[in-house]
Write a protein that binds this DNA or RNA. Sequence first.
DNA 1: TCGCCACGGTTCGCATGAAC
DNA 2: GTTCATGCGAACCGTGGCGA
Length: 303
Amino acid sequence: MLVIQLKVSKDNALIDASYRLSLTEMQIVLYGIGLINPTQPEFPLNYRIDIKKFADMFNRSHGQIYQEVKEAIVKRFWERDFSYLDEKGRTVTLRWLTKMVHEDKSGYIEIKFSEEIQPYLHQLQGNFTTYYIDKIAKFKSIYSVRLYEYSIMYLNKNKMDAGRLPILISEIKNKLGLDNKYNRFCDFKIRVLEKAKNEINESSDIKFDYKIIKLGRSPYKIEFIISRKEKQKHPIDNKNYKHNKISTTALEAAKKLVLSSGTGWDLYVIEQQFYDFIKIKGKPDNLEGAFIGFVNSKIKNKP
DNA sequence: TCGCCACGGTTCGCATGAAC
DNA sequence: GTTCATGCGAACCGTGGCGA
């Protein structure tokens, strides 16, 4: 079975936003985002979801999948929104979709993302996070997806392979849309944190753990302990990795270029893009030179 | 230091409604 | 129709505070 490797790029504000979707709804969003090329000038708001490809991607191949996806969109996703704090500290609430078209038995559903969401998915400038859908495709819990995104965002943003991220319990519950749920911490721990931890460690490219920090006897903060799995640290195949690794000197030079360009781009993301690029084009003789050229070209052609 | 008490967390399990 | 998510009760356990 051929499954296309879709890459998801989201503005960090969207990952940081407070919202709650069911697993199917989140998979629809990710599939749609996966079809977007975040650097292309055009942003086609309409997306055609091929139900068969969707089912293959998320390992949900069975006879009812079209009906399930259709009902998930028509009955629930249509009403869903998400909110975030803008630069003035105001709460902004947006709808995900503005239109959906379905024709039973066609095998396709068309959705249209709202125009307001475009800046969070398209022509992203530096402050965004990228990962492959296949890393989260096996997750059964929506919280695993959200915590995975949050972890990847943290590692990429700080250009780390491992780190610790402390966060208030009230804050993480807010981000997960669980403000008025799981009033007992033990329920939150078992049903959200433990479940996510198991799924992320089992199926994704990162290791995820957490430490509960208490004030007296009451938990008030969680410290997420996140690291990239060894074999996933390098985005190209392991057997060739040592021959293809970009030197620290070249990375430093590229970092200076990015800083002076004022784009605010994440060098880690550019590095990933370069590895993808040479996967297709083949390894250049002068890897460092090609990388610097790649960065220069991106800066020159920035939107 | 020890023992007691109160408070809050943990575990188990069941009920209910939503999602699949 | 089945599975999953959520809420909550009951019993038990661990910890902190306090007095002897």
